[in-house]
Amino acid sequence: MYAVVATGGKQYKVAEGDILRVEKLAGDIGSEIAFDNVLVFSDGENVKIGQPALDGVTVHGQIVAQGKSKKIIVFKYKRRKRYRRKQGHRQPFTAVRIDRIEA
């Protein structure tokens, strides 16, 4: 059994027991979270595809971590112009463990 959910402008294929890192969501560690925007659902035999989302299908999970990703360096440079800009960025994320998929 799996589902495809949309959150944070991205789509994720999830199954029960998976841990996925999504864009930062509000909530504390251990709190429940539900994804209502389910695009595809499969129970192993039948596949339901939403137009654009499915009604009556919800993915429930639990927040296991809130954190920041590794730092990336943004470096801008123009040769012969003495132009250099260095900036770092750490993207915040939320790790969610998928508990169940209700259809």
Rank of each mutant, 00 (worst) to 15 (best):
residue 2 Y to P: 02
residue 3 A to N: 08
residue 4 V to Q: 07
residue 4 V to M: 02
residue 4 V to C: 04
residue 5 V to T: 02
residue 6 A to N: 13
residue 7 T to A: 11
residue 7 T to F: 10
residue 8 G to T: 00
residue 9 G to F: 13
residue 9 G to I: 13
residue 10 K to E: 05
residue 10 K to F: 10
residue 10 K to C: 07
residue 10 K to D: 06
residue 11 Q to P: 03
residue 11 Q to N: 11
residue 12 Y to T: 03
residue 12 Y to S: 09
residue 13 K to M: 06
residue 13 K to G: 03
residue 13 K to H: 02
residue 14 V to K: 07
residue 16 E to S: 00
residue 16 E to W: 00
residue 16 E to Y: 01
residue 17 G to V: 08
residue 18 D to I: 04
residue 19 I to S: 09
residue 19 I to G: 03
residue 20 L to W: 01
residue 20 L to N: 03
residue 21 R to V: 01
residue 21 R to T: 02
residue 23 E to C: 04
residue 24 K to P: 00
residue 24 K to Q: 11
residue 25 L to A: 01
residue 28 D to W: 02
residue 28 D to G: 15
residue 28 D to Y: 10
residue 30 G to L: 08
residue 31 S to Q: 15
residue 32 E to I: 02
residue 33 I to E: 01
residue 34 A to E: 10
residue 35 F to P: 02
residue 35 F to L: 05
residue 35 F to G: 01
residue 36 D to S: 12
residue 37 N to A: 14
residue 38 V to P: 05
residue 38 V to E: 01
residue 38 V to F: 10
residue 39 L to T: 01
residue 40 V to P: 02
residue 41 F to C: 00
residue 42 S to P: 04
residue 43 D to L: 07
residue 45 E to W: 07
residue 47 V to E: 04
residue 47 V to D: 04
residue 49 I to P: 05
residue 49 I to L: 13
residue 50 G to K: 00
residue 50 G to F: 04
residue 50 G to S: 00
residue 51 Q to T: 15
residue 52 P to V: 07
residue 52 P to M: 09
residue 52 P to G: 10
residue 53 A to S: 13
residue 54 L to I: 02
residue 54 L to G: 04
residue 55 D to I: 12
residue 55 D to F: 10
residue 56 G to S: 05
residue 56 G to E: 03
residue 56 G to P: 02
residue 58 T to E: 00
residue 59 V to Q: 06
residue 59 V to K: 09
residue 59 V to G: 05
residue 60 H to K: 15
residue 60 H to P: 00
residue 60 H to Y: 14
residue 62 Q to D: 06
residue 64 V to G: 02
residue 64 V to F: 08
residue 64 V to R: 01
residue 65 A to Q: 15
residue 65 A to I: 08
residue 65 A to E: 15
residue 66 Q to N: 15
residue 67 G to H: 07
residue 67 G to T: 02
residue 68 K to L: 09
residue 70 K to V: 06
residue 70 K to A: 11
residue 70 K to Y: 11
residue 71 K to T: 12
residue 72 I to H: 11
residue 72 I to R: 15
residue 76 K to I: 01
residue 77 Y to D: 00
residue 77 Y to S: 00
residue 77 Y to F: 14
residue 78 K to M: 07
residue 78 K to S: 09
residue 79 R to L: 08
residue 80 R to E: 10
residue 81 K to P: 03
residue 81 K to I: 04
residue 82 R to A: 15
residue 83 Y to F: 14
residue 83 Y to H: 15
residue 84 R to C: 11
residue 85 R to F: 08
residue 86 K to D: 05
residue 87 Q to P: 01
residue 87 Q to R: 12
residue 88 G to C: 04
residue 88 G to R: 04
residue 88 G to V: 04
residue 89 H to I: 12
residue 90 R to I: 06
residue 90 R to C: 12
residue 91 Q to M: 11
residue 95 A to T: 01
residue 97 R to Q: 12
residue 97 R to E: 13
residue 98 I to R: 13
residue 99 D to H: 03
residue 99 D to N: 12
residue 101 I to G: 01
residue 102 E to I: 04
residue 103 A to G: 13
